[in-house]
Simulated scan of single mutants.
Amino acid sequence: MTDHTDTHTDASTDPDSDSLSRSDGDDRPGAVVLLSGGMDSATAAYEARDRGYDVYALHTTYGQRTEDRELECARAIAAELEAADFLRVETGHLAEIGASSLTDDAMAVEDADVDRDEIPSSYVPFRNANLLSMAVSYAEATDCEAVFVGAHSEDFSGYPDCRPAFFDAFERVVDAGTKPETEISIEAPFVDRSKTEIAKRGIDLAVPFESTWSCYRENRPACGTCDACAYRLQAFQRLSVRDPIEYAERPSYADPNR
């Protein structure tokens, strides 16, 4: 696995073109996976491999509170997968823009509300468009045929850039904005599935969930009380499986009527 760990958006040196080339006789198609280090993206990466792709992992650091832990987990997942490449890109402009509790220390990360319908403070304005743009650039440069993202149905109400219509529209942008011979599909394999279904699929694929991180607040242990922790714990609790990561608190979020 080639690891480009010091890549920045303002880097003045080009990566070794040979290390990015897919002309090494490998007949498997390549797929760029947006690998955040969380359970959704990790499962998407394992899904891509299960579908016959070589995984090219793209991890972005954008000033989020738990960026160190997320990077550690993304690297661990890429290593477990024997990814063809690992590219880390720092995108500080999202933190500079602000307006999200994930990147602005002056904004508190809200406590969990799994029934919330409004957009939460953790929403990073138009983040997925930024990340997918980089992923498509990476895919076109490496002759990859797909970009995988782990967005899912329970993200819809809170995050407008996780909707199926957004990914469909972005794929049309890719078609219009890349070379005529380039064909890159945007794959959101869980866009119509719940967090619980992702956890079940990850278990089936033997995803090492102990090497993933979801907490919005803490590098370790996970707080257990932010939205990300709540949805994650709820998914495992609905499956009667213990989430293998460490939590400061483990409230019960499973619906007793399910």
Rank of each mutant, 00 (worst) to 15 (best):
D175I: 04
A151T: 09
T196N: 03
M134S: 11
E187Q: 10
E181W: 14
I184S: 05
L132Y: 05
I186Y: 05
R127V: 11
Y138N: 12
R172P: 02
P120Q: 03
L131P: 02
H152R: 09
D175W: 05
E197C: 04
R201G: 00
D168W: 07
A146K: 07
R201A: 13
E154T: 13
P160M: 07
G177W: 02
A206I: 00
L132V: 06
G202A: 07
E197T: 03
E171K: 04
F166W: 13
F190G: 06
P180I: 12
G177M: 09
K179C: 04
P189G: 06
F148L: 02
E118T: 12
R163I: 09
W213T: 01
E140L: 05
E154R: 05
W213R: 02
Y138T: 11
C144W: 01
R116P: 01
F190L: 12
R116T: 02
P208Y: 00
V173C: 11
A169C: 08
A141T: 08
K179F: 10
R127S: 10
I198S: 08
D204G: 08
D175F: 08
P189V: 04
K179I: 00
A165F: 02
A165T: 14
A199D: 01
R127E: 07
K195I: 04
R116C: 03
E183F: 08
F126H: 11
I203Q: 13
V149Y: 13
F167S: 10
F126V: 12
S137G: 15
D117K: 08
F126M: 13
R172I: 12
G177H: 07
M134H: 11
S157D: 13
T178V: 10
G177C: 12
T196C: 01
E145T: 14
F190Y: 15
E118K: 06
I119M: 14
D143P: 04
K195L: 05
F148P: 02
D168Y: 10
A176P: 00
Y123I: 04
F166I: 09
E118D: 15
A169H: 14
Y123V: 01
W213A: 00
G177I: 01
R201N: 01
L131D: 03
H152V: 09
F190D: 05
F126N: 14
C162W: 05
S211P: 00
S153I: 06
S185A: 15
V174K: 10
V173A: 14
E210V: 00
A176S: 13
D155W: 09
P160Y: 07
C162K: 02
T196H: 01
S137Q: 12
E154I: 08
P180T: 14
R127D: 07
R172Y: 11
V207C: 01
S211I: 01
L131T: 03
P180V: 12
D168A: 15
E197K: 02
R201T: 14
Y123R: 04
E145Y: 02
R193L: 13
S211W: 02
N130S: 12
P208F: 02
P120L: 07
E140G: 04
S211F: 04
A199V: 14
C144K: 00
F126E: 11
I203G: 03
C144E: 00
V174I: 13
I203L: 15
K200P: 03
E183Y: 11
R116M: 12
A176M: 06
E183V: 09
F170V: 07
F209E: 00
L132P: 03
S137Y: 09
